[in-house]
């Protein structure tokens, strides 16, 4: 009978795990729609900025904004890693951290100094555990404009002070709700993206001048790139969590049905043994009479 009780307990515990994973999945599903909408809402604005940036670059051959100047030798490499604060999202953080590590060791091999910026509990914990120092770490983050502004000011200050010569950002970018890729982008010095579709008539009048426009558009675009990366990372995190929790729930359900079968078998076995014992005892009684 001990075996039966054991199985019963296991079923109960797996069922409670199942409840948790299902709840996590539902929470992620409800958050993902909001995250997706926030990300999509940025697209028209970003597109417009990029097309203006292309036009500015076309009209100004030698404008160098301080954030675009790439004169220093790349000796100090900034690595900005975006991970999540919570786990239970499959290999999401692992993949990002793996990529960050590759870059980190590439730096060391080529005699450069890596400067780490870590966003998210998962990244800071990993580097704390391995006792690798980092310049900046932050846990509990929200993908909103205020936070992006703080990041922007910090990164720009560090770049101008020469803390790093080049900065890469590593984050998971969602391809769809169910899949993502880990991307690595150069954030500073700022390199404008070009909008190939735009017609390069070059006859557009700039007011007041393309040179002045650079001072305004470079910070605007950079901030936009940062916030988009954060939103993208959050979107990918929820997507990854949904997938992971769906699988976990399915596995738990499978486990429960296997355990139930085992429970019924064990119970049947116990009954059969009991009947055998009773009938054997009855037969013995009959014989002795």
């Amino acid at each position: 009978m001990g075996n039966l009780k054991e199985i019963k307990n296991r079923i109960a515990s797996v069922l409670s795990i199942c409840q948790i994973t299902r709840a996590m999945k539902m929470i992620a599903s409800s958050k993902i729609s909001k995250a997706e909408a926030l990300l999509k809402a940025r697209i028209p604005y970003t597109k417009h900025l990029v097309s203006i940036m292309s036009e500015v670059s076309r009209q100004t051959s030698e404008v160098v904004h301080p954030l675009m100047s790439d004169e220093r030798e790349h000796k100090k490499i900034g690595i900005f890693v975006v991970t999540s604060d919570k786990g239970l999202c499959g290999a999401y953080n692992m993949n990002v951290l793996k990529k960050a590590e590759e870059l980190y060791y590439d730096c060391i091999e080529s005699d450069c100094e890596p400067v780490l910026y870590l966003l998210g509990t998962k990244a800071t914990l990993q580097y704390d555990r391995r006792k690798i120092p980092y310049r900046w770490g932050r846990q509990d983050w929200e993908a909103d404009d205020d936070f992006a502004d703080i990041l922007y000011s910090m990164l720009v200050r560090d770049f101008l002070d020469g803390v790093f010569d080049i900065l890469h950002i590593i984050y998971a970018s969602a391809k769809s709700r169910a899949s993502y890729v880990v991307v690595e982008k150069q954030l500073l010095p700022f390199e404008p993206e070009f909008d190939d579709e735009q017609d390069s008539s070059g006859n557009v009048i700039f007011e007041p001048s393309a040179e002045e426009a650079v001072n305004l558009i470079v910070p605007m675009t950079l901030k936009q790139i940062i916030i988009t990366a954060l939103l993208d990372a959050r979107f990918a995190e929820y997507g990854s969590r949904i997938v992971a929790m769906t699988n976990a729930t399915e596995n738990a359900e499978q486990l429960v049905s296997d355990l139930r079968l085992k429970f019924f078998r064990a119970r049947q076995e116990a009954i059969t043994t009991e009947i055998l014992e009773v009938s054997a005892a009855a037969a013995q009684l009959q014989e002795s009479e």
Binding site: I52, V204, I205, F206, E207, P208, E212, A213, L216
Partner: peptide
């Protein structure tokens, strides 16, 4: 609110990019 003063736009305006 253009950078160097207000810009009023009616249909068929000259192509322009302004801050």
């Amino acid at each position: 609110p253009g950078w160097d003063g207000e810009i009023g736009v009616f249909a068929s305006h000259t192509p322009i990019i302004s801050m």
